[in-house]
Design a protein around this nucleic acid. Structure first.
Lengths: 180, 180
DNA sequence: TATAAATTAAAACGAACGTTTGATTCTATT
DNA sequence: AATAGAATCAAACGTTCGTTTTAATTTATA
């Protein structure tokens, strides 16, 4: 596979690092663009009403759980790549990831916050972090779910994963804060 | 750093792959051993009563959030390594990770399940997966929390992270199932 | 069609890496 | 103290990998 001369790669992208960044950037932008488009439409439809939290989460998650958009790559390839890059921060991708992540969180947290107005900002960020972690981890391990769950969940069940994750994320955000 | 002749490594471990596996195995076993010891004590103390869910989660998480036990390595090194290996499954670590993970889940799910008896097995596994994902992701990104949260959370705040995570995990497991 | 530029292909270069070798030092046993 | 085995070291070996080079081919432009 990858039937392409490596010299061509260097000719077009300079070096391997730039190629990796470029791929990551393309996929991130593609996914985030779809997210923002959908969120925009939802805002338009909702008008002054808050958008249903389930819909917000779905918009946030679905582009990652769905197969690649333009290319006919295999299911979940992009999400695996993104999930990895967030965990192992190579020096050159760090900035890109931070920028794109902030682009998303700034838009979505505004939408989500209407449902959880009694949550302190830091508490909200912690929960957002947990939700994002759960999402990426799920996408990264979805291909071996059968083994990990001893048959209780199926491999590559993107549909089921998305359904369970959405419910989980909604619950996470709607749980009232505890004073302890 | 790592002031050790590379030949010595090969002499003792054969090759780099074995060395990596050995380190991962040691750390995993060390952490899981402490977990099981603590859980055993808690079971003993509790007698027939169920162990408080908060305690179960604390036992599950704290060994990962605490600094390395025997060695005087820097905070969170082990957890970073483990978090990584779960996400990028190298062929030779996969079996090790699955075994150790199952060892933990089998013990802890039994303890947790007493609090969430109305949860279907698959649903429970999904939530467990989300919780574990959130935990690993948090540990992996804790060193850049300030950037990621725009100052709302602090870098390397293992104490705060553990506190928030514990509450989050308890809430995740105690949320009643929805029929949708 | 002629010419220049862009792209591709094949080969080779050079640095980095994992590993092995052979000599040397340390440790333990008698 | 003498000897054998284990452990360590500096050096070198062989491979892999990212990159560059050179030539051939395609594409665009006049």
């Amino acid at each position: 596979m990858a039937k392409v001369n490596l010299a061509a790669v260097n000719y077009h992208f300079g070096n391997k690092e730039s190629l990796y960044c470029e791929i990551l950037r393309r996929r991130l932008r593609s996914i985030n663009q779809r997210r923002l488009e959908k969120l925009g439409s939802a805002i338009e439809v909702a008008g002054d009403n808050p958008i249903p939290l389930t819909l917000i989460i779905d918009i946030l998650a679905r582009p990652l759980f769905e197969p690649g958009n333009n290319t006919k790559e295999k299911n979940g390839r992009s999400s695996r790549l993104i999930g990895r890059s967030t965990v192992e921060p190579l020096p050159f991708t760090q900035e890109l990831l931070a920028t794109e992540l902030h682009l998303i969180t700034s838009h979505f947290s505004r939408a989500i916050r209407k449902h959880v107005i009694n949550l302190q900002p830091a508490e909200f960020m912690w929960r957002l972090n947990f939700v994002i972690g759960a999402m990426h981890h799920t996408l990264a391990t979805l291909h071996q779910m059968t083994t990990l769950t001893r048959g209780l969940c199926q491999n590559d069940d993107y549909e089921g994963a998305l359904r369970h994750f959405t419910q989980f994320a909604v619950d996470t955000f709607t749980t009232p804060p505890r004073r302890s």
